Computed example of a mutant assay.
Amino acid sequence: MNTYEGQRALIVGGTSGVGLATARAFAARGAETIIASRSPHKLQEALAELAPLAGKSSAQALDIRSDTEVEQFAAAAGTFDHVVVSAAETPMGRVDTLTQADAYAAMDSKFWGAYRIARSVSVDPSGSLTLVAGYLSQRPGKATALQSAINAAMEALVRGLALEYAPLRVNAVSPGLLRTPLWDGLDTEARDAMYEAAAARLPVRRVGDPADVSSAVLFLADNPYATGSTVYVDGGGTIA
Rank of each mutant, 00 (worst) to 15 (best):
Q100I: 08
S214E: 04
F26R: 13
T238P: 01
Y232T: 03
R179E: 14
A162Y: 09
A198T: 12
R29Q: 13
A162K: 05
A23L: 11
D102G: 03
R201D: 06
S126T: 15
F219R: 10
A200M: 09
M154D: 07
G176I: 05
A61F: 01
V231C: 00
H41Q: 14
G237M: 04
P125C: 01
V83A: 07
M194R: 08
A152L: 10
S126V: 09
F73S: 00
D124N: 15
S214M: 08
A48S: 14
A48E: 15
G113A: 12
R139Q: 15
A54V: 14
A162G: 08
A61M: 03
D234F: 05
G127Q: 05
A240R: 02
A105V: 08
L157K: 00
G93N: 11
V85G: 00
L182N: 08
T22C: 10
V95K: 01
F26K: 13
T97Y: 00
D187F: 10
A166K: 04
L136C: 02
S39C: 03
Y165G: 00
A77H: 07
V70A: 01
T97G: 00
L182V: 04
S66I: 05
A162T: 08
L157P: 00
L43T: 02
A101N: 09
G13F: 12
S37F: 01
E45F: 00
S120T: 06
P40V: 09
L62F: 05
